[in-house]
């Protein structure tokens, strides 16, 4: 049988539901980017499922014409895990936010990542609680003034990339809502990856944290702060590549240096496939809460068997000879295995 190539377009992935985000929300750009990316997967719509938690971002599944579930706060990775494990034929995506994934659902996120379940987790990070109208989130900057922290937050935020790496994630990346081309490149790499993919998407909340990522978007500032990671290429940034990443003289970290002042050979060449997580971790620490030196792109991409393939292997080994038996035969076999006795 010859495969008829699928000819889907972005329009095919639009549902009939009216999109209800605030004007100027970064979610529109991400939705549009994903709708235009999906046809590229070459997967029929019915084979794709989006599972979300609760929050502005989690309305996502309603707007995609695939299978979808808008579940409960923080639990999407757990629900998606059950779906992906029992249905390895599906392409399963999780849409979440910084509060959903890192606060109420932090436990499920880290365990999905360590198991390497084949789910692609998109975490929209706007550094604020939007749907509950403006409280600080686990990624809000220290000292941030919000409705729940009127004189400044006392919480140290998570670095989501570092959290994912600490949780043994095999694929970790960051991108930005407004950069469709970059977003597509990261989605492409994630989709091709076997196992969990964690993608942090910086996303603007126009109402409660407007402009949080402007420094990364503004043509006047972005070149000096945005570190575009490209596999196999030296890590340099700045309008004319005047800054670069080198090893710290002390400890095991990385730091930013003037490209002109270091020998070319000392500039770190980005390698997504370094087996240990330490390299990607130090990269994730280049940026601070003020977004200086913010790497975007794929931090880590290492091959590790997907959880469900390991589960399927065990199941297949246990099911030798099962194909020839009826369900009733199998049940009789089970019930009569072990110690039985007969009364006549």
């Amino acid at each position: 049988m010859t495969e008829v190539p699928l000819k889907l377009t972005a329009k095919d992935f639009r549902s009939d539901q009216e999109v209800r985000w605030c004007p100027g929300c970064g979610d529109f750009a991400i939705l549009s980017a994903i709708q235009s990316f999906m046809p590229e997967l070459g997967i029929p719509r019915e084979q794709i499922t989006f599972v979300s938690g609760i929050g502005c971002s989690s309305r996502f599944p309603y707007y995609l014409n695939t299978y979808g579930m808008h579940s409960i706060h923080g639990r999407a990775p757990a629900i998606a895990s059950g779906l992906a494990i029992s249905r390895p034929d599906l392409s399963v995506w999780v849409v979440s936010g910084d509060g959903d994934a890192l606060s109420i659902g932090g436990n499920h996120l880290i365990h999905a990542l360590r198991r390497n379940v084949n789910i692609k987790i998109l975490m929209f990070n706007n550094r604020i609680y939007g749907l509950t109208k403006g409280q600080c989130s686990p990624t809000s900057e220290f000292g941030k003034v919000t409705k729940s922290t009127p004189v400044g937050s006392r919480d140290t935020p998570f670095n989501p990339i570092a959290v994912a790496l600490g949780a043994e994630a095999s694929f970790v990346a960051r991108t930005i809502d407004s950069d469709r081309k970059h977003l597509h490149s990261v989605l492409r790499a994630a989709a091709a990856h076997q196992g969990s993919a964690f993608i942090e998407i910086y996303q603007n909340c126009a109402i409660f944290n407007d402009g949080a990522f402007d420094v990364l978007k503004d043509p006047a500032s972005r070149d000096s702060v945005l570190v575009r990671l490209e596999h196999g290429k030296p890590i340099t940034f700045g309008a004319s590549g005047e800054k670069c990443v080198v090893r710290e003289p002390r400890g095991f970290g990385l730091e930013v240096a003037d490209t002109a002042s270091v020998p070319r050979s000392e500039i770190i060449v980005h390698d997504e496939t370094v087996p240990g997580p330490a390299y990607a971790f130090t990269l994730s620490r280049l940026s601070d809460q003020d977004l200086s030196n913010t790497p975007v792109g794929v931090f880590r991409r290492v091959a590790r068997p997907a959880y469900e393939s390991l589960v399927q292997e065990q199941n297949a080994a246990a099911r030798t000879g099962v194909a020839d038996a009826t369900p009733d035969d199998l049940l009789a076999e089970l019930l009569h295995t072990g110690n039985t006795w007969t009364i006549r």
Binding site: S15, Q17, R45, E46, Q47, Y62, Y67, H70, R87
Partner: peptide, 13 residues
Amino acid sequence: VPGTPGLEHRVGG
């Protein structure tokens, strides 16, 4: 169930 063509739909809380 997902995988059934033509019945794509969304459920939620």
